[in-house]
Design a protein around this nucleic acid. Structure first.
Length: 422
RNA sequence: GUGACUGUAGCUCAGCUGGUAGAGCGCCUGACUGUGGAUCAGGUGGUCGCGGGUUCGAAUCCCGCCAGUCACCCCA
């Protein structure tokens, strides 16, 4: 038996419905803010990620799928979405359309990691990117979208954590201060932390082995330059205006090098170690660093698998279409009539199933019940003779004989509350 | 990449100290020659994750591999 590659997922049935529900809720939400879709390639030059995500990050150092194509090009499966979109923005000269430019995307990402629940090698992200606005209102709009999206899904218990990690002007002085502080504790640090000390000082803050040293470490807020501090204050104020609850988390450091100023994460308290549903932040220098015009930007990415897990954990179910099963009882001529009935109902927008197994009426009823059909229409000899069909409400067991026209009317009336008002 | 645990029917699991497999649920059919959910009867279903070793004999013991789960690393 050929089996799927480690860390990949086959998704179908109920679960696929859940994914589609997540995606369509996301699209609905971003459309209401007038964001436009962007689709970029899954394969990109390795160099793109080395220069954007960062040479020293784990993503680039050990998690990237890299190969050489037949033309000798060094190719990577994208480990995240932002880099490709920034590349596309520059390559297509999107800045000529003015600012801001607001995009959303949905797609597969790849990272070679040890899989566990909520962490796949092929995983799926949805996200937004805003180009051209240096304003804290842009940061907050992306957060607003993220929170509203989760709320629309029913995840109103998601918790927002925000921080500012400064800019190239003020961050170095903070890093120096951290190094100075930690240099006195080098002996007490865990093995990983000694590596972090040299490679990425900021990461020392969220060590899980021993947090007591980090507790007393200098806080970045005290090192922010005036511009960064003001920016952060405005972000917090705007969040208050929108009534979005948040926690300022000075230890919130993100793993990608391109972030400046605002960083944020949205977590849910019941998913174990993989509890971050959405992560994002501002990246004011990335467009320029990749060769484009100096363009501030901000965005987030959310993990579809994790959001799906959260919804499952909370027992949130996807609203289902009304299902009508057309059952045949009798000979071949009833089947012909049943098809016509089914098709008429489909043309009216209903979701209609008909027997494909040539089973007995009893079996068809069993099937309809199992498929959670809301109504069964029975088409048999009697119905053909009378020109009226039997409509059975599977919930109440009530049934009546109706002409096709009457049946459509009854069903449309009955389904209206479930389809919403229109 | 590191550590720990797990892997028996579609699903949840039982199978004691080695004697080549069971239950519940599900699914199919019937009781019910035009009616689902309840009940009853029958039926379908498994190279015991894969490979090797020990043994007269392995689902059971040993080793390796694969996959999953949990934590770390990191992140969505």
């Amino acid at each position: 038996m050929i089996r799927r590659i480690k860390g990949t997922l086959d998704v179908f049935g109920e679960q696929a419905c859940l994914w589609r529900y997540i995606e369509s809720t996301f699209i609905e939400t971003v459309r209401s803010f007038n964001y436009r879709e962007v689709r970029t390639p899954i394969i990109e030059p390795v160099e793109l990620f080395v220069r954007s995500v960062g040479e020293e990050t784990d993503i680039v150092r050990k998690e990237m799928y890299v190969f050489e194509d037949k033309g000798g090009r060094r190719v990577a499966l994208r480990p995240e979405g932002t880099a490709g979109i920034v590349r596309a923005y520059i390559e297509n000269g999107m800045n000529r359309f003015g600012a801001p430019q607001k995009f959303f995307y949905i797609g597969a990402m790849f990272r070679y990691e040890k899989p566990q629940a909520g962490r796949q090698r092929q995983f799926h992200q949805l996200g937004v990117e805003v180009f051209g606005s240096p304003s804290p209102f842009a940061d907050v709009e992306t957060i607003h979208i993220a929170m509203k999206f989760l709320k629309n899904l029913g995840l109103d218990d998601a918790r927002l954590h925000v921080n500012s990690i400064g800019c190239p002007k003020c961050r170095p002085s903070y890093k120096d201060a951290l190094k100075k502080y930690y240099s006195e504790y080098l002996q007490e640090l865990c093995e990983d932390c000694r590596i972090r000390y040299d490679r990425n000082v900021l990461r020392l803050l969220d060590c899980k082995v021993d947090s007591s040293i980090a507790e007393k470490a200098p806080r970045i807020q005290e090192f922010l330059c005036d511009e960064c501090r003001e920016h952060f204050v405005k972000v917090c104020k705007a969040l208050d205006t929108l009534n979005l609850k948040y926690t300022v988390d000075p230890k919130l450091v993100r793993g990608l090098d391109y972030y400046t100023r605002t960083t944020y994460e949205i977590k849910v308290p019941y998913l174990g170690a993989q509890d971050t549903l959405i992560g994002g932040g501002r990246y004011d220098n990335l467009v320029r660093e990749l060769g484009g015009p100096s363009t501030p930007a901000v965005g987030f990415a959310g993990g579809i698998e994790r959001i799906a897990l959260a919804l499952e954990k909370k027992g949130i179910v996807v609203p289902r279409d009304i299902l009508i099963y057309v059952a045949t009882a009798g000979q071949d001529d009833t089947y012909a009539a049943a098809i016509t009935v089914a098709e008429t109902l489909r043309d009216r927008g209903f979701c209609v199933e008909i027997d494909l197994m040539e089973r007995s009426l009893t079996s068809q009823m069993r099937y309809a019940n199992r498929a959670k059909a809301d109504y069964v229409v029975m088409v048999g000899e009697d119905e053909l003779r009378e020109g009226k069909f039997t409509l059975r409400d599977m919930k109440t067991g009530e049934q009546r004989k109706l002409t096709l026209h009457e049946m459509v009317e009854v069903l449309e009336k009955a389904c209206k509350p479930l389809h919403g008002d229109s």
